[in-house]
């Protein structure tokens, strides 16, 4: 009963993980004969200006989209947690972007970002703002990609926060009401601390997902203009499947793996610490 699963696991998970590690020390390009390069691929990564740029872009994308996305989804979840009518409608509305394919979402947003006929610049024109050529401007392409990504994942984080909020006992709030606490002090002193394990989990998951962003960038900007939206997975993809530098791409994939691993270990460590709640 275990056999099919274990075979598949070895063949498509464990073996590839090890193989990528081995390939990352070679110069394999699919056609020529295979030669070991030692740690040269990793050395090259440090000297590759494009990789430096791509690494920076990935961090910028993550460090901007994760905090904004979390703050917005937390506020929405707090509003949604008030036993309102139409909760099912709101929940569905925020969740529809989550279930939609990123390809479809990218097509829709490209049309919204269209500099001449797009909805966004039209809306900005009501306020007398002459909107930029979002996706073809080196300055605005990254913000555009970030806005779309936040829009897409908002509903997912909101639902996890909602589940976290519902697990906080009403008695804390009742006690605070008796003491005459204002809503903002209840939020800061009860909601935020008691929700911190959920917040931390959402942060870690968002961080890991943001680090692996690909579809949005591939579809909306092809990493451009002038590499302004190239992120790590996009560069891995280019090296592996466009330049056929399997060794170099594997080394890059391992750097990504390493970062995700560190973040995951921090998550485990904090989880233990927070078991008091």
């Amino acid at each position: 009963m275990l056999l099919p699963n274990v075979l598949g696991f070895l063949l498509f998970l464990l073996l590839p993980v090890l193989a990528t590690f081995a390939i990352s020390f070679s110069d394999w390009n699919l056609t020529d004969s295979f030669q070991w390069r030692g740690v040269d691929n990793y050395k090259e990564l440090f000297e590759d200006k494009v990789f430096g740029q791509v690494f920076k872009n990935t961090f910028v994308f993550t460090l901007v989209s994760v905090p904004i996305g979390i703050a917005l989804s937390l506020v929405l979840a707090v509003f949604l947690n008030q036993k309102l009518r139409f909760v099912r409608f709101y929940r569905a509305a925020f969740f529809i972007p989550v279930i939609s394919s990123m390809v479809a979402v990218s097509v829709i947003w490209q049309w919204i970002y269209n500099p001449e006929y797009g909805l966004l610049n039209y809306a900005l024109s009501w306020f007398g703002i002459d909107g930029p050529a979002w996706l073809t401007s080196p300055r605005w392409a990254m913000p555009a990609v970030i806005i779309t990504s936040i829009w897409k994942s908002l509903g997912f984080n909101m639902l996890i926060f909602l589940a976290g909020l519902q697990s906080i006992s009403d008695s804390y709030y009742e006690a605070a009401d008796i003491d005459g606490a204002k809503w903002y002090s209840k939020f800061a002193r009860i909601t935020v601390p008691l929700l911190s394990p959920t917040t931390f989990f959402v942060t870690v998951m968002s961080f890991i997902n943001s680090f692996q962003v690909f579809d949005t960038v591939y579809l909306m900007t092809q990493g451009g203009p002038a590499r302004s939206t190239s992120v790590m997975v996009y560069y891995v993809f280019q090296n592996a499947f466009q330049y056929f530098r399997m060794g170099y791409a594997s080394a890059m994939a391992y750097v990504l793996f390493f970062i995700v691993m560190i973040v995951t270990f921090i998550q485990f460590w904090r989880q233990k610490k927070w078991s008091v709640y």
């Binding site: 498509f12 193989a19 990528t20 391992y254």
Partner: peptide, 23 residues
């Protein structure tokens, strides 16, 4: 064995993609 399964949960999909392609 289950521990090894758990450990692969944190492996990004891109890490297994190149060998799978070669396979």
């Amino acid at each position: 064995l289950f521990g090894i399964y758990l450990a692969t949960l944190m492996v990004p999909a891109q890490v297994t993609m190149i060998p799978t392609f070669l396979l």
